[in-house]
Amino acid sequence: MKPTDLRVALFSGNYNYVRDGANQALNMLVGYLLRQGVTVRVYSPTTKTPAFEPTGDLVSVPALPIPGGRGEYKFAWRLAPETRADLEAFAPNIIHVTAPEVLGHRAVTWARERGLATISSLHTRFETYPAYYHLTFLVPLMIKGMTRFYNRVDQVVTPGQSTADILREWGVETPIRIWARGVDHARFNPGMRSQEWRRSLGLAGEEFAVGFLGRLVLEKGLDIFAEVCRTLTSRGVPHRVLVIGDGPAREWFAGQVPEAVFAGFQRGDDLGRAVASMDVLFNPSVTETFGNVTLEAMACGIPVVAARATGAVDLIEDGVNGFLVPPRDVSAYADAIARLAEDAELRRAQSHAGHQKAQAYQWDDINQVVLDTYLEVMERRGK
């Protein structure tokens, strides 16, 4: 079978209506597949105000806003008749599902009833979310449901070995392959650093900028981030917080880090400039499966202090291109950031090491892994 023989129906819970690392990776994948001659059709909830234009053909599936203050995300509770009719007309030979939600389950069931190949990619550690909303009693049920979900498909692809290991611990027996992430090296590199841009935000001269990059939501570890910054202040470590991004927790976070500079969402080359203009990226999130922001910072030559959790452990060599810290150890986070703030030679060494490591992450090479996986699954099934 050749790439041009593939007809892929890709199901996503969020393909382009909110900007995050997962949907941007999916859009990059679809673009690559289309360039290789693969026929792709994407099924996802949509909005009238998408965050960016979708890559490829996007079919809107019926969905409702998620309750509980997270209405910016959509929940598709079924595989609607009009979606089924579109699928039948498209006639895919492989189904790729990207989230263990109702839509993904229904798509897998639809495929299994027709004897079609199925692949699932893992993008988010949803089982870590309840802890941020005082719903930890849901975690065992979520893990049980996700284990069943990943055992129903022919192949799973995960962003790194750390997430693959977790699936195995849960009892997932489906074959697993690693699909990492790439980075745009023309956009994310040390040459994008701009003292002029820093000054425009009120960051003086050599002021040490502790950066946050991502959506401002509680599950990104904003509580720990704020507590660590207060600890740095109490220790007399000079620093300023530079926040790149926005989200529903912005007002709360601004109250926690009142001296922070909020630069808002940055896009394109402006984003590369913002990342390169930090002095350290602080990423205390434990919900990441890969950590696109970590790789982008590394490509810019920015040391990273991160939680010792999935994603970060696949990218950061502790003490070489950043520091890995036990997830909620405020004192240890502060120690690591203080070391970088006070030791310019250490910063330079970690900057160089991170930049060098990031060079291996090229989007086309990484997305070829998914295409190869599609073809291998079809071969296993005798298609």
Results as ranks from 00 to 15, higher is better:
7 R>K: 15
15 Y>M: 04
17 Y>H: 15
17 Y>P: 00
19 R>I: 08
22 A>P: 08
23 N>Q: 12
23 N>T: 13
24 Q>V: 14
29 L>T: 09
30 V>N: 00
30 V>L: 02
31 G>W: 03
32 Y>H: 15
33 L>S: 04
36 Q>M: 14
42 V>C: 04
43 Y>D: 04
43 Y>V: 02
44 S>V: 01
49 T>M: 06
49 T>D: 15
52 F>L: 04
53 E>W: 01
58 L>N: 04
60 S>T: 12
61 V>C: 01
62 P>G: 05
65 P>W: 12
65 P>M: 09
66 I>P: 00
68 G>A: 07
68 G>E: 06
82 E>C: 08
93 N>P: 03
93 N>F: 00
93 N>R: 01
94 I>G: 00
95 I>K: 00
99 A>L: 15
100 P>I: 09
100 P>S: 12
105 H>E: 14
111 A>N: 07
112 R>Q: 12
115 G>D: 06
120 S>D: 10
123 H>S: 03
127 E>P: 03
130 P>E: 04
136 T>D: 15
137 F>Q: 12
137 F>R: 09
139 V>D: 00
142 M>L: 15
142 M>H: 10
142 M>S: 10
143 I>Y: 00
148 R>F: 08
149 F>D: 05
151 N>T: 13
155 Q>K: 11
160 G>E: 04
161 Q>M: 07
162 S>W: 12
164 A>H: 02
166 I>H: 05
168 R>H: 11
169 E>W: 05
174 T>K: 09
174 T>D: 07
175 P>E: 09
175 P>I: 06
176 I>Y: 08
178 I>E: 05
180 A>C: 08
181 R>M: 12
183 V>A: 10
185 H>E: 11
185 H>L: 14
196 E>R: 13
196 E>T: 14
196 E>Y: 01
196 E>H: 09
197 W>I: 13
198 R>A: 08
200 S>Q: 14
203 L>P: 02
206 E>W: 05
209 A>V: 13
211 G>E: 03
217 V>R: 00
220 K>E: 15
221 G>Y: 06
223 D>W: 10
227 E>I: 10
228 V>G: 03
228 V>L: 09
230 R>H: 13
235 R>I: 05
237 V>Y: 04
238 P>F: 06
240 R>T: 12
246 D>R: 08
247 G>P: 08
248 P>M: 09
253 F>V: 07
253 F>A: 01
254 A>W: 05
257 V>I: 13
258 P>R: 09
260 A>F: 08
261 V>L: 13
262 F>H: 06
262 F>N: 06
263 A>C: 12
269 D>A: 10
271 L>R: 08
272 G>H: 06
272 G>I: 02
273 R>M: 13
278 M>F: 11
283 N>S: 15
290 F>A: 08
291 G>D: 12
302 I>C: 11
311 G>L: 07
313 V>Y: 02
314 D>L: 05
324 L>R: 03
330 V>S: 01
331 S>F: 12
333 Y>A: 11
336 A>M: 05
339 R>C: 07
346 L>C: 10
348 R>H: 11
352 H>E: 13
353 A>S: 13
358 A>K: 01
358 A>Q: 02
360 A>I: 04
363 W>K: 03
366 I>M: 14
373 T>F: 02
373 T>V: 10
375 L>K: 02
376 E>Q: 09
377 V>N: 01
377 V>H: 01
381 R>K: 14
383 K>I: 03
383 K>P: 00
